[in-house]
Design a protein around this nucleic acid. Structure first.
Lengths: 329, 329
DNA sequence: TTGAAAGCGCTAACAT
DNA sequence: ATGTTAGCGCTTTCAA
């Protein structure tokens, strides 16, 4: 194979008989250029099959037009849709997107934070479930978080979790459920998602019922989760309504319920949470609270861009949720 | 707020009372250094909170340690799992991963190819469904494709589609199905996936049955797809077995079947394809052919790294599939 | 064991 | 309308 030397501005300049600067100007459409020069330069570029070295440009500009998405894993309906929506919007704005699956591993999350601090990326969207990463508190670089409290100065985009909780529980109450159980992840995760539980408890208390919540970690296997749900059915055979904190769990609960001869919705009603694309395609029967994923993506991108552009005083936002009526409740 | 000047090698060198070279050596653990010097330099780095500029290093090395994943969308169980597995492996090897959702848009795919040619990424994993992008034929830069023929010199990692097709159809035949229909996407997509259809046709012909295939584009809405399936049930009310080309379609077919009062598996059997994580969690009842997604990821990463390291003669591989027995067939 | 100097490929003052 | 030059921050020969 022929050893190919990389073609640079200089080579184009030489062939076109102009200076590097002129070539750079043609490349960036900047400054005054005569048509003749422009043509000469373009011809030379074509002839040499010139390709600008973006890294060099990045070094000069101190900007990479790269952002990283730090979520537990993209292999989950909610995050998959969210990341796809984020990528779509960033792409339109000329940003490339790094996939940062943190696996809920603080070390990996810190790696991505380092990328930001090292100026390898211009910004970060984080939605991981780790906590206590102190660097978040210190940095003033652009970070937007989704459904998670990260640090005082970091804006959060979330959906209206309290309202979502109310909608879900009210639906079960309206369905006539007497014994409603909630599943959530361990509450120490410092997420606005706790508000769902708050709403559940408030509404239960208001109706003089005892709130019962089962904790299920996000990052364990389906089998592990099913084990918790079996325990739940054994400990509370009277349960007739479940408000699950996400659709995957709702789906697992329905399956485990079958083992206990519970038929949904006749003798068990289930309301899920998230309402992502994939879930609705694969489990259309699920009644659920839908988070406005596309709008959340739009907002997060908007806020991050403001931060990247140096704007201060960027505020958190909360977006409304929607009830999706189907047949499990 | 205080205007912070970025700390560079020079600053560290000055504070430590050594040269840039020495600091660089400490940073990279290269060459002979006295312990005293090393300590001095580290102290200075700590004091200044020095962070190396990776872009500058990339410019020098002409290597970004970045790869891009070009697939139609990550918002799909198969691609989500595949991309997550790829990211996990690349991360362990020190590569970062760009998410390239091509939306089956050739222009977007070309953009990512450009990233590669511009040396902004070191390699590409492609699994999009576009075709006729001539640049693929010309480049000698590192590209590995998954389940898709891209160009003569580009290695393909695929699962054994022919075997998968045989397994699926044989299962339906064993179940006693007399009128089996196959769904696939338009055949011009130059994918090894055509082999599934080939297997279907071969087996049908062998059993003296007429093969019937319905084409469903990958990148249309669920509603659009359901429309095709309704047409299928109307045109072929005798159908009693379906070999769907992916699990999402299988799921949609089962739903549409209900509209036609078809009860699965009693009077309609369905075998899907892919067997991704999410699908199995959300639609565990689906009998399907499972692609070895983690192994495909492992192999693709391995091949791409060989290419990045300059190895030639990197060969395509085919990996075995597996039948997942459940209740829809 | 350490340093000086050149250069990775590009951009932007500043000059003409 | 175009060119000269300095420099973005780092690594690496080469020399000492």
């Amino acid at each position: 194979m022929v050893e190919k030397k990389t073609i640079k501005l200089d080579d184009v300049a030489e062939l076109a008989g102009v200076s590097k600067t002129t070539v750079s100007r043609v490349l960036n459409n900047r400054g005054y250029l005569s048509d003749k020069t422009i043509k000469k330069v373009h011809d030379a570029m074509d002839k040499l099959n010139y390709r600008p070295n973006v890294i060099a440009r990045q070094l000069f500009k101190q900007k990479t037009n790269l952002v990283a998405l730090v979520f537990p894993t993209v292999d989950n309906p909610f995050f998959a849709e969210l990341e796809a929506e984020l990528e779509k919007r960033f792409d339109q704005l000329g940003y490339r997107v790094l996939m940062g699956n943190s696996q809920n591993n603080p070390a990996k999350e810190q790696d991505y934070l380092k990328l930001l601090l090292n100026h390898q990326v211009d910004g970060l969207i984080v939605g991981s479930h780790n906590q206590g990463i102190s660097e978040y508190q210190k940095t003033t670089r652009p970070i937007v978080s989704i459904e998670r409290f990260v640090g005082k100065q970091i804006p959060v985009v979330s959906s209206d979790n309290y309202q979502g909780g109310l909608l879900a529980v009210q639906r079960l109450l309206n369905d006539g459920c007497k014994h409603i159980i909630h599943t959530n992840y361990p509450i120490n995760l410092v997420s606005p998602n706790e508000l769902r539980q708050q709403a559940y408890e408030d509404l239960m208390n208001k109706h003089h019922r005892k709130p019962i919540t089962y904790s299920v970690s996000f990052d364990v296997s389906d089998e592990e989760k099913e084990r918790v749900f079996r325990k739940m059915f054994r400990e509370h055979p009277e349960v007739d309504g479940i408000f699950a904190d996400n659709d995957t769990n709702a789906s697992l609960i329905i399956r485990v319920g079958k083992e206990f001869n519970r038929h949904v919705p006749d003798d068990l009603k289930v309301v899920g949470y998230d309402g992502a694309n994939i879930t609705r395609t694969l489990s259309p029967e699920l009644t659920t609270i839908q988070q406005p994923i596309p709008e959340m993506a739009t907002k997060a991108v908007e806020l991050l861009l403001q931060l990247i552009e140096g704007k201060t005083n960027v505020k958190s936002v909360t977006l409304p949720v929607k009830m999706i009526n189907s047949t499990t409740a």
